[in-house]
């Protein structure tokens, strides 16, 4: 399968294949049809991404509190404050650690499951469905289930521990809360598993057979054939999972203890999130909605955006040394 367009080696511009005059097919359609077809995406991108980002950038230079009409320009004060705020650095370090643990586990887990479910066994479709199901359960439901299962006084896990004579463990508070957060992040392995499974099934059987004939064992076949062929998918998954993980917000909020109150209380609040789960985005959320510092929160969002941009750039750059495409950049098959 060739996804890349052919390029002129001299200019780097795309070139049409021989026998197909450039742009000929497009010219058959009036321009308005082009705009009609691209407009949903363009409108969505500009209205729901570019405009909010621009608005957040403007907010980041103010002390807006989200409610009052009285606000003023503060220049770069919010950014300066952020660089000197120990909570920001602590939450950033914690988010980095979370990504360092959760992303590799998620990739390895997804790949491992895909390898297991790529066997020719009876009822394999049922197993695949079972492993995929958790990833379609909404995160809110999953987090609430985790809260019930790991509740210290009434949870299933401590019930089992009590049955074998072990004292209850306070899973949902520090220092165990971070472990539970990691476990929750792995609950959606099924999504990655499906993508890896598709990749595994696209590996030409003759490659694996040739390696077997040459005496390669399962490990060598995995290391020298399966992994390189899957590397574009691993790369794709790595970039997406990394970005999502660095933006994690909902899971720590949902795992946090309930806020006390009168009847109808029991909601969660960013300031109640355990220290171990106090990720960067939780701090951003707290700044917005607990401390009403919309300007400062917006500055923190822009800092995270730049961090993610930098991390993604590093990953993209590193990909040239470990991602193997079946086609060259000029579109010719290797």
């Amino acid at each position: 399968m060739t996804l890349l367009t052919r390029q002129d080696p001299a200019t780097g511009h795309p070139v049409a294949r021989a026998g197909r005059p450039r742009g000929r097919r497009w010219k058959r359609y009036p321009t308005w049809k082009f705009y009609a077809f691209v407009s949903p995406w363009v409108i969505g991108c500009l209205a729901l991404t570019a405009v909010p980002m621009g608005y957040a950038l403007l907010l980041s230079f103010t002390d807006f509190d989200g409610l009052s009409g009285n606000w003023r320009w503060v220049g770069l004060d919010n950014y300066t404050t952020a660089f000197h705020d120990p909570v920001v650095w602590a939450s950033l370090r914690r988010t980095g650690l979370y990504a360092l643990i959760a992303v590799p586990l998620s990739l390895a887990g997804g790949l491992g499951l895909a390898l297991l479910l790529n066997q020719r066994l009876r009822a394999m479709g049922v197993f695949r469905t079972i492993f995929y199901l958790p990833s379609v359960v909404p995160v809110v439901a999953t987090a609430l289930m985790f809260k019930l299962v790991f509740d210290r006084d009434t949870g299933l896990v401590n019930g089992i521990l009590a049955w074998v004579g072990i004292d209850a463990v306070p899973w949902l508070i520090d220092p165990h809360a971070f472990t539970i957060l990691i476990m929750l992040s792995l609950w959606g392995l099924g999504g990655g598993m499906v993508i890896f499974l598709a990749g595994l099934q696209a590996i030409p059987a003759e490659l694996l057979e040739a390696a077997s004939v040459d005496g390669a064992g399962p490990l060598r076949r995995f290391w020298h054939i399966t992994l390189p062929v899957l590397s574009p998918m691993i790369f794709f998954q790595l970039v997406l999972t990394l970005i999502t993980t660095l933006q994690t917000l909902v899971q720590p909020l949902l795992l946090a203890p309930a806020v006390s109150g009168g009847a109808g209380g029991g909601a969660t609040d960013a300031t109640h999130v355990q220290q171990g789960d106090f990720l960067y985005m939780v701090n951003v959320y707290a700044q917005f909605f607990s401390y009403q510092k919309y300007g400062y929160g917006a500055a923190l969002l822009w800092i995270l955006f730049l961090v993610i941009l930098a991390v993604t750039a590093v990953v993209l750059r590193s990909s040239t040394s470990w991602v193997h495409y079946e086609v060259d950049q000029d579109g010719s098959e290797q």
């Binding site: 019930l148 209380g265 029991g266």
Partner: peptide, 11 residues
Amino acid sequence: GPLDPISDWQG
């Protein structure tokens, strides 16, 4: 308290 959280309000 924070060392012994409950999953709902006290009622």
